[in-house]
Design a protein around this nucleic acid. Structure first.
Lengths: 255, 255
DNA sequence: TATCATTTGTTCGTATGTATC
DNA sequence: CGATACATACGAACAAATGAT
């Protein structure tokens, strides 16, 4: 029944019955309108919030912020430019705070993607944001100790920009290739706090794995967490010109 | 308070206090354990479900299905191979049903990405699934009428595999380039039905835009919606070798 | 500055429906 | 069939934020 109410209100928003920017009738009014209890209305409002259609504020009311099916306003380009032999250029990110450096034991997705379960790594945490909208994102760089051993300058100053990390890896003799894995999930409570997610917006999560092209050996892992309600990641796909004789097999996913 | 309970249980799961596969104490028991009411426990369980830690089934109980921080089991490769001049090869997808062809008016993200607001397009709906896990995904191809006009064979049989669409566009004289936009949101009620999302898992959404490289004119839009709890998209990033806009080129960077 | 009505946020207790075993 | 457990809904109370008086 709560779902039916949510669908009804969503349809009304889509039809223009409720305009964007307008405040919906109060919950008490909706109870009367649909002849249901408070819990039902609140469940329905929760669905509408997660769908990104409305935004509620205590003491004010529920405002329509979208009619659904819109493109997220913040575009995060995931492109890599190589200008010279070891000169890399990445889309800029504005840092909200000074990066935090720590030493961690690799676990979860970074460990799987790097193939280094329970190994140690240097991790650099950054809070970045989009200057136009103020959207905050969490960025984390994992530098395995085995990688740092081959590029000693990395271990000394791991908080340098990512493009410089790529440069140092290139100077260390590696030929870099990049793979990115994207997924999403509901944020943990502490992530809601640090990213300022007032709603129950999902979290868009991407892992960029930098590997040595020849050895196919993972060298670096970068994690980016962004609120999916306001962000979209953009990739440029380059067709690979593979010979038709043999199919290059990707690693099968079975964890 | 509900959040605190959720954090406590999540910590217990992460610490191994509750093992994966095990059933949690019943909601009634938890009310006693934490000294809270039913609504609080249910809110907490809802958070744990969205985080992908537990799965609840009516009449059975709440089962732990993950300790958090795991890699989604289904990897969806988003790669494009070009074998010959107009011979394309894409990762295979298993169709669950026969494709449904309809004519729609472009709206929302597809319209924005194609730059064709309110124009008509042929849309081909497919329900695909991963044979190993049975995960269902919704795939939709938008062929603008303006594109169909230049590749007439497309309009006659739009339900051909995507690789064949690329082939026909190449034969029509286009030089194809691809861009992909990824975001996520909570599923709509009808999407929960059709995709079989028993939980409140977010929906991972990606739009692949096929454009003509020279004219930078969008030709085609493919939409893929997959349950984020079990899926990750994988991209291969190719560094672009762009000439520096300010730095003068001293050497001919042939590579 | 203080007060008050309005509105959402959170929790509680209870009841009923429904799937599982 | 019956006991158990989750799903859904109702009614009530209080807290907290907001905006106007």
């Amino acid at each position: 029944m709560a779902t039916q109410v949510a669908e009804k209100v969503a349809a009304d928003i889509k039809r223009g019955r409720y305009q964007v920017g307008e405040t919906l009738p109060s919950e008490a009014q909706m109870e009367q309108m649909y002849g249901v209890g408070k819990a039902t209305i609140r469940t329905a409002m929760g669905e509408l919030k997660r769908m990104g259609l409305i935004e509620t504020r205590q003491g004010k009311g529920s405002m329509v912020i979208s009619t659904g099916g819109t493109v997220p306003p913040v575009t995060i380009p995931r492109a890599i430019q190589q200008r010279g032999k070891g000169s890399w250029f990445l889309p800029e990110m504005t840092e909200a705070e000074a990066p935090a450096i720590s030493r961690t034991s690799l676990d979860g997705p970074p460990a799987v993607h790097l193939g280094q379960q329970d190994q140690d790594a240097i991790s650099v945490d950054r809070m970045v944001y989009d200057p136009k909208t103020g959207t905050r994102m969490a960025h984390r760089t994992f530098i395995p100790l085995s990688t740092a051993a081959e590029a000693p300058s990395l271990a000394e100053a791991p908080e340098v920009p990512t493009s410089e990390i790529y440069e140092q890896l290139t100077q260390a003799g590696f030929s870099l290739s990049f793979t990115e894995h994207v997924t999403a999930r509901a944020p943990f409570p502490d992530e809601r706090m640090s990213l300022g997610l007032d709603e129950a917006s999902p979290l868009l999560i991407t892992y960029r794995i930098t590997a040595d092209a020849e050895q196919e050996r993972p060298l670096l892992c970068e994690e980016l967490r962004a609120p999916a309600a306001t962000c979209q990641l953009t990739f440029s796909l380059t067709p690979t010109k593979a010979p038709a004789k043999r199919t290059p097999r990707r690693r099968s996913a079975s964890e």
